[in-house]
Design a protein around this nucleic acid. Structure first.
Length: 649
RNA sequence: GCCGAGGUAGCUCAGUGGUAGAGCAGCUGAUUCGUAAUCAGCAGGUCGUCGGUUCAAGUCCGAUUCUCGGCUCCA
């Protein structure tokens, strides 16, 4: 029997072999490190017997797949056993792996909290120290159900009962113990191979993710092959925590929230500058040669609009509306008004307000209108999940032939904007879902147009089949921030349904009536959320063009006040945002504060600078090492700052 | 909306039924200083809100609200 290894070499065995046999034949070191084996592309336990010619790969924790096996074992064998032993009445549900770790859902008799984690962790370490071998056995459906019924594990029984087309189930026994688990596997051959881990948090989670079901307790953990990598990961988490936009937003005086307006951010003077700069930069990019026209549209509409658009049937739960519980209110024809959750219906009304010619297409309407969505209470958080926000929204009314070139332009626009923030991004193409409107022929053309546009821009993309909206396919973008996290921001969605619902028409070159296609698109996504991403991306140290305070002039002593005032005035005259710090404190103290406020340019003025009309620069960390002179003249300095204060798009 | 954890000075937090605290920030005064914290004094609170238990509640109980971690939702 022949076993092919990843390097192409072939090893012959006389009869059936296990993964462990193969690993051992290659070397004792590998046997020790081996955690599982991939046989013809399928991960299996080392103990599984291979009976036919196969190509295999021995997995160790160095492989992502091997690491996954280890995490899985930590969840299913170690964490599960520890909770069963520490909390005898607990019932195990499922324990899969996730990015960087694992979790296990457990039903406890009494709630547990983060404070209980160290004890569980301690028990887990003891369990690992036992280095018990794990043995796989296949049980028939009946035997498996009987086993878990007897062990009072209703969730395991439920899983088995719901699994169709399978007669045998994989049951893992931990030798020398009473512990048994139903699991897809594979698992480590013995627990001694478990690497470094840490339990991180507890949270609630519904059984099978359905809110009608019982709420279980989910215990999260993170795990890596060795202690060093775990520590690195924990450090990365700490770094992310330090950058948390809610913390920085408060520290830097950018935003606030109030109990009286849950889910609705206040932008304080400094935050408002960020907001304004972003909003204006986008608006300027789109208007004029960008080919867009901006509109401003109402907040509050008669429910008739939402009935036409379909929101009343599909989105009413997320809408703020009033009038329906106040019969005398007579607020409108239908007696019900709703705050807009999206701009699209408004733009349909704008398009439909006059006779349109094919010569007007593509008609591009942009709108940074305020939107309200009644998000669930528990879903609110910082600037990323809000009830009131603005999108850099636009709707393009196009003919079908124009889709491809419009989308091509949009993709270039996305690139322009993200590269201005030094952000990489990834595109995802979502195609027709099962429940969809429109013919297959229509979807074929629409999907092809999007794909062609992506290819024309040389953009690699991930295909997400079936993930499109029922009204059309879409391209979504994930941006990657400075510490490697991904955020979904931009979206480009084709819509064949909405213009039809509003009965929109334009006159074609042949003097006939046709319905336009609508492209919904946003690049930042929501301004609020994008600001949150930028705060974390830059760790609050914004590039000069959007920094709320671009320059702080620091006086060394009273003697240089007049020079400080003059520097400030000359910079302000050039439209820069400048503050002068004349407090009677030492220069070291003022510098420290300016650093904490993440001001890009700190200009120190003392008697020397006064004499030769210069400033002495102290640069924010990210501006150092760029050949910026330390003691420029005021004119030179002005030029330097102006250069970096230009909007990058 | 559901499960869990929280809410004490502007901020970060301590305070296990018996006189509400610290550091930073603030204010006042002194210091006029050259690249990440000058010194001293003062002031600052309905302990999220409402109700209950108790001789006595920041502390115990109930409700409510907001925040946080997840789940769910995201036409």
């Amino acid at each position: 029997m022949q076993i092919t290894l990843p390097d192409g070499s072939i090893r012959a065995f006389d009869g059936p072999v296990t993964g462990a046999d193969i690993a051992g034949s290659i070397g004792p070191g590998l046997l020790k490190a081996a955690v599982a084996i991939e046989v013809n592309g399928t991960e299996q336990d080392l103990s599984v017997v291979i009976t036919a010619d196969s190509s295999v790969k021995i997995l160790t924790v160095r492989d992502e797949a091997g690491l996954d096996v280890m995490r899985h074992t930590l969840a299913a064998q170690v964490l599960a056993r520890a909770t069963r032993e520490l909390y005898p009445g607990s019932k195990l549900a499922i324990g899969p792996t996730i990015k960087n770790g694992f979790y296990y859902d457990v039903e406890f008799d009494a709630p547990i909290s983060t404070e209980d984690l160290p004890a569980i962790e301690k028990r887990m370490k003891d369990i690992i120290a036992e280095k018990n071998p794990i043995t796989l056995r296949m049980l028939s459906r009946e035997d498996a159900i009987a086993l878990f019924t007897e062990r009072n594990e209703p969730y395991k029984v439920d899983i088995i009962e719901r699994t169709e087309g399978q007669d045998e189930f994989q049951i893992y026994f931990q030798d020398n113990t009473d512990f048994v688990d139903l699991c897809r596997g594979p698992h480590l051959a013995n627990l001694g191979q478990a690497g470094a881990f840490k339990l991180t948090k507890v949270a609630g989670a519904y059984w099978r993710g359905d809110s009608k079901n019982k709420m279980l307790t989910r215990i999260y953990g993170t795990a890596f092959g060795d202690r060093k990598t775990l520590k690195k990961h924990l450090n990365a988490l700490a770094e992310a925590e330090k950058r948390d936009h809610r913390v920085l937003g408060k520290q830097l005086g950018l935003i606030m929230f109030h109990d009286y307006a849950p889910g609705a951010p206040f932008f304080l003077p400094k935050g408002e500058i960020l907001y304004h700069e972003l909003s204006e930069a986008m608006r300027t990019l789109l208007l004029g040669k960008g080919g867009y026209q901006a509109v401003r549209t109402p907040q509050l509409f008669d429910a008739k609009l939402w009935k036409t658009s379909g929101h009343w049937d599909h989105y009413a739960d997320n809408m703020f509306s009033f009038g329906d519980d106040e019969p005398q209110a007579e607020v409108s024809d239908s007696g019900i008004m709703g705050l807009k959750p999206m701009n699209c219906p408004c733009h349909m009304l704008v398009f439909g307000s006059q006779k349109r010619s094919y010569r007007e297409l593509p008609l591009r309407i942009c709108d940074q209108g305020v939107l309200h969505r009644n998000e669930l209470r528990g879903a609110l958080g910082g600037l990323t999940r809000v009830r009131q926000f603005c999108q850099d929204d636009a709707h393009l009314f196009v003919t079908e032939e124009q889709i491809e070139s419009e989308v091509t332009d949009l993709l270039a626009l996305v690139g322009t904007v993200y590269s201005a923030f030094d952000m990489e991004f990834k595109a995802k193409l979502s195609t027709r879902p099962e429940k969809k409107l429109g013919s297959d022929d229509l979807w074929d053309r629409a999907e092809a147009a999007l794909q062609n546009a992506l290819e024309a821009n040389n953009l690699p993309f991930e295909l997400k089949e079936g993930d499109g909206a029922f009204y059309g396919p879409k391209i979504d973008f994930d941006v990657v921030d400075a510490i490697g996290r991904e955020w979904q921001c931009a979206t480009i969605q084709l819509d064949y349904q909405l213009p039809a619902r509003f009965d929109l028409k334009y006159v074609t070159a042949d003097n006939e009536l046709a319905t336009p296609v609508v492209i919904h698109r946003a690049i930042f996504g929501s301004l609020e959320r994008f600001i949150a991403i930028l705060i974390e991306h830059y760790a609050g140290a914004f590039p000069t063009w959007m920094a709320p305070e671009q320059v702080r002039v620091l006086t060394v002593s009273e003697k240089s006040f007049s020079h400080g005032e003059s520097v400030k005035q000359r910079l302000e005259a050039a439209g820069l945002r400048v503050h002068l710090d004349t407090r009677a404190d030492k220069i070291g103290f003022k510098i420290r504060e300016a650093h904490k406020d993440k001001i890009p340019w700190m200009a120190i003025v003392g008697e020397q600078e006064m004499e030769n009309d210069s400033v002495a620069l102290r640069l924010r960390t990210d501006l150092r090492g760029k050949g910026i002179p330390e003691k420029p003249s005021v004119d030179q300095f002005l030029e330097l700052v102006q250069e970096t204060a230009k909007r990058p798009f």
